[in-house]
């Protein structure tokens, strides 16, 4: 009979773990059989795992537009862009795009400059962008979206007919964010490179208007 009380106490104590001091004192007053350890505290170390915060500084997307090459004509352009936002004011973007260049109009007047009537054109550029006017745009009464007007400037290369031309570009665009992670861009850019067909070397201005969508990740 006497032996059952400490055992009962032990079993109660072993179940009610975190309560601590009160139980320790109670155990001290009860008679202990032999050299058994009275309390075996088994409190597990709490495993605090801090979840990572999702950072969305990179942007990847595609765009379509019209690229006009000086003296040649305007053709559609399809491109992809990857951008990294350094802070709320600056970002770096790289683009690569494919278009074509055609001298049909010139050839009809006797001046055929390119190896074939329509040649593939590829350009790539790395640019720095500056968010000039971060803002909010409103559509009708209900919708407000974060937006920003930005300026771009960079360097790259334009390749067509087996020739590559060092190209500089300046431009500006507007970025609208219907969701935090989705962006729509409308960009106008001027690509400047030196071209020497017709014998004279001049710096040509080639404008591109493009509309693109990209995702932040």
């Amino acid at each position: 009979m006497n032996r059952s009380i400490p055992f009962l106490l032990l079993s109660v104590l072993s179940v009610a773990q975190p309560i601590g001091a009160v139980e320790a004192r109670a155990a001290d007053t009860a008679p202990l059989p032999g050299s058994e350890q009275v309390i075996r505290p088994e409190i597990d170390r709490r495993d605090i795992r801090i979840p990572r915060i999702d950072t969305e500084d990179y942007e990847v997307g595609a765009y379509v537009g019209i690229l006009s090459i000086e003296d040649f004509g305007a053709r559609p352009v399809f491109g992809a862009r990857l951008a990294y936002h350094v802070n709320e004011d600056y970002f770096v973007e790289s683009v690569i795009a494919m278009s074509s260049i055609s001298d049909e109009a010139l050839c009809n007047n006797g001046l055929c400059v390119l190896p074939s009537r329509v040649e593939d054109l590829t350009y790539f550029a790395v640019s720095v962008g500056y968010n000039l006017f971060p803002s909010e745009v409103f559509i009708a009464k209900k919708y407000a979206m974060n937006a920003s007007l930005y300026l771009l400037g960079g360097i790259g290369s334009t390749i067509y007919a087996n020739e590559s031309h060092f190209t500089g570009n300046i431009g500006m665009g507007i970025r609208i964010l219907p969701k935090d992670w989705l962006a729509m861009h409308l960009t106008i850019r001027d690509f400047l490179f030196q071209s020497d067909f017709l014998g004279t070397s001049k710096i040509t201005n080639n404008f591109e208007l493009s509309f693109g969508m990209s995702v932040y990740f």
Binding site: I53, H85, E88
Partner: peptide
């Protein structure tokens, strides 16, 4: 709760 981060801003 910190939902996400964009540059130096936290949602």
């Amino acid at each position: 709760e910190l939902l996400k981060r964009k540059t130096d801003w936290f949602k």
